[in-house]
Amino acid sequence: MNTTAEAIETSTANLKASDFDGDRTFEGTLGDITAAEARMECRQVNVWYDDNHAIREVSLDIGKHEVVSMIGPSGCGKSTFLRCLNRMNDTIPAAKVTGSIKLDGREVLDRGIDVVPLRAQVGMVFQKPNPFPKSVYENIAYGPRIHGLTNHREELDELVETSLKRAGLWEEVKDRLEQPGTGLSGGQQQRLCIARTIAVSPEVILMDEPCSALDPIATAVIEELIAELRQEYSIAIVTHSMQQAARVSQRTAYFHLGDLLEVGATGQIFEDPQHNLTRAYVTGRFG
């Protein structure tokens, strides 16, 4: 035990104060950014918010049947990167995105492509729960309705029920489906938004801290859901919980001040990180 602590001590002893501010030189991402069977391939993605260079030259694959977790200190650009993947940064007038992101070989960042089917394919759960000011039922039914997934009330009822069940919310809301979703508690809203997203069966699911307001039991349900979704789909998840990243993901990416410092198999990132900053972060020395 003592020796591990000492090993970390020596490996992080040569961290300089300048490592923690923005003026560092960045020599490229450590580790293997590619996935065995890539669903999404991001190359040299940059995002500016006006003059703020939020993420720099990020290249990363998200593979089939894979959960990629993204970790890193607050403000390092995890949400920004995630929002690139389904073009949600379009809704921020100040945001500018460059580089290349491909979904099944098709360029996503092309101005000409239609973002509507893209977003139906690449679903997203936001960092802040944002239920519609409609009933719980209507919140879930919204997506299936606009995509015409079901034509019958019974089918829709069933879809709503299974979505809520998979998100672990059914027992809590089954008697109040007609009440407004905005009246639920923070954690219930978070699960409502997860249920809403999976109701349209997206093939790639982006989750931005989906368990930040959940108790351990609800968190376990969501992690089970993620494991189950992985059988068919691809998932990118942002989390501040190392344990969660270790439990649910196959690969982990460490972001630092807008750079993707290191990518690797989850076990390797947590047990044998290459970069000093990654090591410092995963062992809880800062962040």
């Binding site: 949600m88 809704t91 893209l118 977003r119 997203m124 944002n130 239920p131 997506g143 606009i146 938004c193």
Partner: peptide, 8 residues
């Protein structure tokens, strides 16, 4: 955002 992200 919530609505767009569902493909609306």
């Amino acid at each position: 955002d919530g609505s767009y992200a569902l493909g609306a």
